[in-house]
């Protein structure tokens, strides 16, 4: 920071000012508004009345809503876990294959991001529906088994993994790429087989990418709306759907605000947790 002249603005400000302005106007101020609103009493007539209260937050502990909250975090964790398990091998392959294969592989990996969540979710409906592609295929094979996961948590997790995998693979690939192949070979000659080498060298050394991927996947998974609305049914309802309904259908903005604040706080807590864990031992 430049302190040479009290009148002169520090030069870094010019670099971040445009985005900062955008964040303040369209994120910080509305979020502050949401925070304020969440502590006001709901009014069926005027949406909110100027009485301060914490009862909106109390509602979260009703059985119905705590079930939704728990489900949201459960789905977030399972999705993130699956993304890690599926993403690591893919990221490792992409980081170690030829430049050409990497370009093609990256394109394929990024494909889910090029399709909107609405279209993608309808795709899953077509596949998973009662007489969808999957079940028709099973029937055509003469099998009596039926896949019946549409409108459940499983369908939401499936679609979330599909959409979020790129966000896990990209940071992981970037991290693994920086690990020298010689490092792997050094572990190998010391007696580490492929799996041991991966566990003892690749995983710890790609931690930065892993943390980014986990944060991205988890925070997006727990705040998702469209995918759970289209594929979750009642059994796969998440906080995002509850907020949506409270805002649009029930017009209970104060309660919707309190839910939103809980969600934002959860993401902030998860982030600081991940970053603290990530910084430990590296220094």
């Amino acid at each position: 920071m430049s302190t040479s002249s009290p009148r002169k603005l520090p030069s870094w400000l010019w670099l971040v000012a445009p985005y900062l302005a955008l964040l303040v106007v369209f994120l910080a101020l509305p979020l502050a508004n949401v925070l304020v609103l969440s502590f006001h009493r709901y009014s069926p007539v005027s949406i909110w009345e100027p009485t301060l209260t914490v009862e909106n937050y109390g509602q979260i502990f009703t059985p119905y809503l705590s079930a939704i909250t728990l489900r949201t975090f459960r789905i977030g964790l399972i999705t993130t876990g699956l993304c890690v398990l599926l993403g690591y091998p893919v990221a490792y392959y992409l980081a170690r294959c030829s430049k050409r294969a990497m370009t093609i592989g990256m394109f394929i990996i990024l494909l889910p991001l090029m399709v909107s969540a609405v279209v993608g979710s309808f795709g899953w409906i077509v596949i998973l529906g009662r007489s969808g592609l999957a079940n028709n295929a099973l029937a055509a094979l003469g099998l009596s088994a039926r896949i019946d996961i549409l409108y459940s948590e499983s369908a939401v997790v499936l679609a979330l993994v599909h959409f979020l995998l790129p966000l896990m693979v990209l940071p992981l690939t970037a991290s693994i790429e920086k690990i020298s192949v010689r490092m792997e070979e050094a572990a190998t000659v010391l007696g580490a087989g492929p799996v041991t080498m991966f566990r003892l060298v690749i995983v710890p050394l790609s931690r930065a990418g892993l943390i980014s991927g986990v944060l991205l996947c988890f925070s997006i998974a727990i705040s998702v709306v469209v995918i759970s609305a289209l594929l979750g049914g009642r059994r796969g309802r998440l906080i995002g759907n509850e907020i949506y309904d409270q805002v649009i259908t029930a017009a209970n903005w104060p309660f919707a605000s309190s839910l939103a604040i809980v969600l934002v706080l959860s993401i902030i807590i998860a982030m600081s947790l991940a970053l603290t864990l990530g910084r430990r031992k590296v220094a």
């Binding site: 490092m183 070979e185 050094a186 190998t188 000659v189 087989g193 003892l200 050394l205």
Partner: peptide, 20 residues
């Protein structure tokens, strides 16, 4: 014999100590 079972010592040109 796969490389991790050969028991041969190898020191590389680049620094390959595990940084963590």
């Amino acid at each position: 014999v796969p490389p991790h079972k050969r028991g041969i010592g190898l020191v590389f040109q680049s620094y390959t100590l595990f940084p963590h």
